Simulated assay, not measured.
Amino acid sequence: MNDQARPSTRPFRFGVVTPVDSDLRTWRDRVRRIADSGYSTLLMPDVPTWQPALGPTLATAAAITDLRIGSWVYAAALREPWSTAWEAHSLSVLTEGRFEMGIGAGRPGIEVELGLPAVSAAERRARMRETVAALRRFDGPDLHTPVVMAVSGAKSQALALEVADAVTFVLSAEEGRAETAKRAGDFSGGRDIELVQHISAVGDGVAPYMAAPDLDTAALRAADSLLILPADPSAAAEEIQRRREEIGFSTFVIGANFADTLAPVVADLAGR
Rank of each mutant, 00 (worst) to 15 (best):
residue 9 T to Q: 13
residue 198 H to K: 03
residue 61 A to L: 05
residue 234 S to P: 00
residue 15 G to N: 02
residue 47 V to S: 13
residue 260 D to I: 09
residue 85 A to Y: 00
residue 18 T to M: 09
residue 222 A to K: 13
residue 32 R to E: 11
residue 69 I to Q: 03
residue 20 V to R: 12
residue 150 A to K: 04
residue 93 V to A: 12
residue 112 V to M: 08
residue 272 R to T: 14
residue 178 A to S: 14
residue 99 F to R: 09
residue 256 A to D: 15
residue 272 R to G: 14
residue 27 W to V: 04
residue 136 R to Y: 01
residue 267 A to F: 01
residue 147 V to W: 07
residue 94 L to Q: 05
residue 151 V to T: 14
residue 263 A to P: 03
residue 89 H to M: 03
residue 10 R to E: 08
residue 248 G to M: 08
residue 189 G to I: 05
residue 115 G to P: 08
residue 57 T to N: 04
residue 28 R to D: 10
residue 234 S to L: 12
residue 272 R to H: 09
residue 182 K to E: 14
residue 144 H to G: 08
residue 73 V to Q: 06
residue 47 V to R: 11
residue 112 V to W: 00
residue 133 A to T: 14
residue 190 G to H: 06
residue 120 S to R: 05
residue 259 A to D: 11
residue 16 V to E: 06
residue 133 A to Y: 03
residue 162 E to T: 08
residue 10 R to F: 10
residue 9 T to H: 08
residue 209 Y to R: 13
residue 28 R to F: 00
residue 147 V to D: 04
residue 5 A to R: 12
residue 223 A to H: 11
residue 52 P to I: 08
residue 253 V to K: 05
residue 107 R to S: 14
residue 271 G to D: 05
residue 244 R to Y: 04
residue 125 R to I: 12
residue 171 L to V: 11
residue 243 R to S: 06
residue 39 Y to N: 06
residue 17 V to G: 06
residue 34 I to Y: 02
residue 41 T to L: 11
residue 25 R to M: 12
residue 246 E to A: 15
residue 183 R to H: 07
residue 259 A to N: 02
residue 73 V to H: 02
residue 41 T to V: 13
residue 197 Q to T: 10
residue 37 S to M: 03
residue 149 M to I: 10
residue 151 V to M: 03
residue 198 H to F: 10
residue 229 L to G: 09
residue 225 S to A: 13
residue 72 W to M: 13
residue 18 T to A: 15
residue 191 R to I: 13
residue 251 T to H: 11
residue 185 G to I: 05
residue 166 A to C: 03
residue 137 R to T: 14
residue 167 V to G: 01
residue 139 D to V: 04
residue 233 P to T: 08
residue 57 T to M: 08
residue 5 A to V: 12
residue 198 H to C: 07
residue 238 E to W: 00
residue 94 L to C: 01
residue 180 T to M: 15
residue 51 Q to M: 14
residue 1 M to R: 08
residue 128 M to T: 11
residue 208 P to Y: 07
residue 153 G to Q: 10
residue 195 L to K: 03
residue 110 I to F: 04
residue 206 V to G: 05
residue 105 A to Y: 00
residue 229 L to M: 04
residue 56 P to V: 07
residue 85 A to M: 04
residue 268 D to Q: 13
residue 13 R to P: 10
residue 234 S to A: 14
residue 110 I to E: 11
residue 40 S to W: 00
residue 38 G to N: 02
residue 195 L to S: 09
residue 265 V to G: 06
residue 253 V to Q: 09
residue 128 M to G: 07
residue 107 R to W: 12
residue 142 D to F: 08
residue 84 T to P: 01
residue 195 L to V: 07
residue 239 E to R: 15
residue 89 H to K: 06
residue 91 L to G: 01
residue 74 Y to I: 15
residue 30 R to G: 12
residue 224 D to W: 00
residue 272 R to P: 14
residue 55 G to V: 13
residue 83 S to T: 15
residue 252 F to M: 12
residue 34 I to M: 04
residue 222 A to G: 11
residue 117 P to D: 10
residue 186 D to Y: 01
residue 160 A to I: 12
residue 140 G to C: 10
residue 237 A to N: 00
residue 157 Q to M: 14
residue 136 R to P: 00
residue 70 G to A: 03
residue 3 D to Q: 13
residue 20 V to A: 09
residue 55 G to N: 07
residue 34 I to T: 06
residue 188 S to P: 00
residue 108 P to I: 14
residue 23 D to G: 12
residue 25 R to A: 15
residue 178 A to P: 06
residue 192 D to P: 00
residue 237 A to I: 05
residue 152 S to Y: 15
residue 97 G to E: 07
residue 90 S to Y: 00
